[in-house]
Amino acid sequence: MHSRMIGRRSFLASTAALGALAFGGGTTGCAPSSRARSTAATTGGLPLTAVNRTGRYADASIHMYVVGVDPATGAQGHVTADGAFVPCTASDNGPGGFTDYAIPFRDSGEATVVLPKMSGRVYFSIGDRLRLKVVTDGNGRPALQYPAGWVGADPNYRILHDWIEFTHNDAGMFCNTTMVDMFSVPLAIRLAGTRTRTTGTLVDGGRDRIFAAVAARPEFARLVVGDRLRVIAPGHGVEAGLFPADYYDSYIDAVWNEYRRTPLTVRTDAGTYTGTVTGERLSFTGGARTPASIARPSTRDVLFCDGALAAPNDGVTGPVAAILGAAFNRSTLLSEPRQPAADPARYYRVPVTNHYARAMHQASADGAAYGFAFDDVAGHASYIQDEAPTSVTVTLTPF
């Protein structure tokens, strides 16, 4: 696992709370009152180019948004086309109640910006502009409320959109595509620097394959929104009443019964631990420090890698919880008593598994995807990094 992974776990931690990531959710981060512009030129900016290769949508119909947190101040805000980071303020909301942070695509099929040092997201919307709103958090400070395509009441629900996540800092550029919450627009990242790497590219017809694979599973079919507008992740499906809240329960019961009588070995960078179930908890021995015991998780805990499987940034319990979360989602925990299981050919092979994540990986040209929050375990996430980056390109690939 990467120590600087920008997925659901440390992306949120590294930004010190990015604000309301879900429509209607609480906001926890914000800009100070100053509107000082932090320019890319003075903070070691990184050229970012977005390219329209959809083959379906005109350049003028696509908009790019770069939003996130200035690490120097903790301010939330957006990046302008000239590479300036501007903290958000309530006055950014226009007459309709939303901001207009869009960077348009030119007739050449590209949009460009120079990224300052920050953590954030690059959003793309097609056919309409995103409804990003500046709201007030519990401390009376402004904060951004981001789209939540898995919530029917969200003002962006009917807008075709998607995003990548990144952290650009003195250590380099760390970025990933993500399907942790939803999948809609096929995006690929090319990062140049000490070497050139790409991730996120789908196989030919990959988007259609994803929708077809999810729709083919009865429990998952209701996760498809509209006429292939997007697929929402099953955890959000549980919250929306679109996915069985007990889906993993039989598998969880079988795992708990198995490791009452058989030891489970979990290897992490901090040491190797042996786990056994006593009562309702999976407890571990071994290593210089002992991980906290893990309570029996629920289906929701598995799908969100949260609750009983939450991974604290303690170097001990966190890595163990992450490995268990990945093993549950990939359904390798019964068949592989030594974790993490590294061979992707052995993932998703039983009926009760995360078929949403399976569809993402099977449609990916390099086999990598971020189908759930701990998909970086054993290195299978659509994540790339470079310690001396020179440019990054995000391509909206063919539908």
Rank of each mutant, 00 (worst) to 15 (best):
A102H: 12
A148R: 11
Y146Q: 13
Y157W: 13
V135S: 12
F124G: 01
P142T: 04
A81N: 07
Y157R: 13
P116I: 02
V69C: 04
V151S: 14
D154L: 10
R106T: 15
T89Q: 15
R131V: 01
L132M: 15
G120K: 05
N93C: 05
G97R: 11
Y123H: 12
A81D: 08
R141V: 12
R141L: 14
I159D: 01
I103R: 06
V69L: 06
Y123C: 06
G97N: 08
G96P: 05
L160H: 13
I103K: 05
A75P: 00
Q145S: 14
G138V: 09
A153C: 07
M118R: 02
R131C: 12
P95K: 14
G138A: 12
T80L: 12
R121E: 12
D128W: 04
D128F: 04
S108L: 07
L160P: 02
G149E: 06
T99Y: 03
P116G: 07
Q145K: 02
G83K: 03
G94N: 06
P147H: 09
P87S: 08
N139G: 14
R106N: 14
G149M: 13
D70T: 00
W150P: 01
P71C: 06
A75W: 00
N156Q: 05
S125T: 04
I103E: 00
A81T: 13
G77W: 00
H78W: 15
G97E: 07
P142A: 04
L115N: 03
L144A: 08
L115R: 03
G120L: 07
T136N: 07
G83A: 06
D100S: 11
D137L: 04
V86G: 10
G83Q: 06
G120H: 07
V134R: 05
G127V: 04
S125Q: 08
D70R: 10
I159P: 00
D92N: 10
R131M: 09
I126W: 05
A75Y: 00
S125H: 07
D70E: 15
R158V: 08
Y157D: 04
A153R: 13
V69Q: 10
D154Y: 10
D70S: 05
S125F: 08
S91K: 11
V134G: 02
H161P: 01
D128H: 13
V122H: 02
P116M: 06
V151C: 10
T136I: 13
R121I: 00
Q145Y: 02
R131Y: 13
N139W: 09
P116S: 09
S119C: 11
D107C: 03
M118Y: 01
T89E: 14
Q76H: 14
N93A: 07
R158I: 03
I103A: 01
S119I: 13
D154N: 12
L132H: 10
P155V: 03
R131W: 09
S125I: 02
A143V: 01
A102E: 10
R158Y: 11
N156D: 15
F124Y: 11
L130Q: 10
Q145V: 02
K133G: 03
G74I: 01
